[in-house]
Amino acid sequence: MARIGNMEFFLDPNRCIGCQSCVAACSECDTHRGHSMIHLQYVERTISVQTVPVVCMHCDSPTCAEVCPADAIKRTDDGVVQTARKPRCIACNNCVLACPFGVPKMQTEFSLMMKCDMCYDRSSVGLKPMCTSVCPSGALYYGTREEIEHLRPRSEPINTFQFGEQTITTKVNMMVPRDAGVQHVDVLSAMEESPVGNAAMLDSVFDDM
């Protein structure tokens, strides 16, 4: 199997403009053709235009795989957590409920869990995942660490997430402000927070005008 090499996935939800290009492109992927695996999450549609593109973060210790009673979810040698193996998946929904990022999708009519596999047919041979090849705002970026540091000198990729007492490290990186000095993204810190991303972005756009 070809190697992904030094190419990495960088996720920057704050740059998402909600155009749905990633959703359309995702369904073109050969490993799950016709089924879009990316989530374009509307955060609070009534008060905000903020959207969050969510791909599989490819955890180093994937909770979805561990809680699978059928042992159907496997991680490749290069760290990509694959969609459920078709002969094994028993459609119990455990992975969907256990994933800390809310990624897997249950295809009830097929009795099969499907999820983002970083377009393994493409990334395993050195091509970009479909979503990153069409994202116009750079919310989804696939490239080398040197490229992303050159492009976004004020940002820093981190891959550590905190969920209560549980720390999860991932293959996919999230872009955070370099000067914030954070070691991880504390997801539960957003429990009581309102959407901010695009509101902040629109403010800055209007300030520039």
Binding site: P13, Q41, V43, Q50, V176, P177, V182, V187
Partner: peptide
């Protein structure tokens, strides 16, 4: 799961609002 996805985006947005002058 839907709230988990929303919270991921909000948490990142908060980091930018507090430490990174908006959206970079």
């Amino acid at each position: 799961p839907a709230c988990r996805r929303s919270m991921l985006g909000i948490a990142q947005g908060e980091l930018w609002r507090n430490g990174g002058l908006g959206v970079g």
